[in-house]
Design a protein around this nucleic acid. Structure first.
Lengths: 136, 136, 136, 136
DNA sequence: GTGGTCTAGACCACG
DNA sequence: GTGGTCTAGACCACT
């Protein structure tokens, strides 16, 4: 049932990512974890900007990126809604990118001399919170 | 028994990482996987530079970074050797960095809409290849 | 409040340390003595190079080493800033290195037949100037 | 009363210093700590070489350096003895070198982010073991 | 404008 | 021979 979502997002000032990037990541995660359901309406640009105490343009930029990535859809004059999840990436492309991401992660784990088992465990926990969803 | 290593490293031109960065990553992985053992001598700066068809300064930069990170030790006029593996990072710092790495990885997995279970599995495989060694 | 620092650094030509090394030592000392505060911006690579009359690459190398040692952070296109001071080294590693440094120093004191009490006094004075800050 | 000393020296294979350098440092320390008294005879080159399981030439090289630095004197055909301690360094020269050594030490303490107070304390302990001796 | 990287060529110190 | 350093000049990506 469509509803208007309240977004619990925390902006970290010292983060390497841009503020818009942090908003994008947070919303993508919430959609992936079905914390935001298909059809849910998102807060208005001005509303979210005020809530997060950031510039409305920043929120607008984040929303635009999510729309272009098919995470959100815009209904003219009615606001933004979580889009139905069809996948814009081909299997091959997704596989390639996943490989690259895994490779990057392994490099980081090695670089900090972290325990491999613990690293796997933490990834499992973090991804487990997303539940079991799409593209199985 | 110390030996002189032959490094199978492939430099990918299109890689986002710098050439020196690719060398650093490759050597750190080989050390972590015990493909390079403590005490092994590394190829000379000029030798590896010729093998990889890059500038000796680039190899030197990579080696310097590995020395400063305690992965290698330099014996004046004698070459570079794989250092005894101790834990140079504090637990707190390593934890902080592992958390950040996990967070980045999760963001990437979500962004490409990859299957979380498959992502965990692939990380497990990739890290499993490193064997069970450090900071248990 | 973050500010842009002016660095009073003197490069000594005859010094055994490299030019880059001298820059690194000087900046580390200033940070330790809180002469450079967390968040302060450092002079640009080109600016400091011109001030010290050295090659920009030399300054860049010094900065790179300070970044890799978590003394500075780089914000893309924005310059370099003094990083928040955490303890990147494990207690064991720091202890080991301190022991080695003390041992080296004692050997030097003995070798020049300096008065031990005077040596201790001078170390106390020199370290006292750094104030009482880290890893208490 | 002149006696023939037994030297408790430990050679560390992985040490950055040469073996001869380690022997020199060790003997200088023992003389400074009056563990070796003026007039004491040192072990023969062959004897010490056998005891330490190193090449006699290495011991000979170490002894030669100590003689040239006026730590030992050679009595023809009678062996080597701890020399009377007169100081070959001028006050100015010793002061300069002590300053340099202190500076190096401070740089190392800063680099490893060690606690300054602890560093001073450890130097005090290490130098205290030498007792109160010369050139006061 | 900022830092970051790579190349090229030269010189030094060490063993 | 080895690594280490500095200079010079070029190109890139980011803001």
């Amino acid at each position: 049932m469509p509803r208007t979502a309240l977004l619990a997002i925390v902006i970290v000032p010292g983060d390497r990512r841009s503020i818009a990037g942090q908003i994008v990541d947070a919303i993508r995660r919430k959609i992936s974890a079905t914390e935001l359901a298909v059809g849910d309406q998102l807060p208005s640009v001005r509303g979210l900007a005020q809530q997060l105490a950031v510039n409305p343009n920043t929120v607008s930029k984040a929303y635009a990126e999510l729309v272009s990535g098919s995470w959100l859809v815009s209904r003219a004059g009615m606001g933004l809604y979580v889009a139905a999840q069809r996948d814009p990436l081909s299997d091959g492309e997704r596989n390639r990118r996943l490989d690259a991401a895994v490779d990057r992660f392994v490099n980081e784990v090695v670089a900090i001399r972290a325990n491999p088992d613990e690293a796997v465990e933490r990834v499992g926990e973090a991804l487990g919170e997303l539940g079991l969803r799409q593209s199985a």
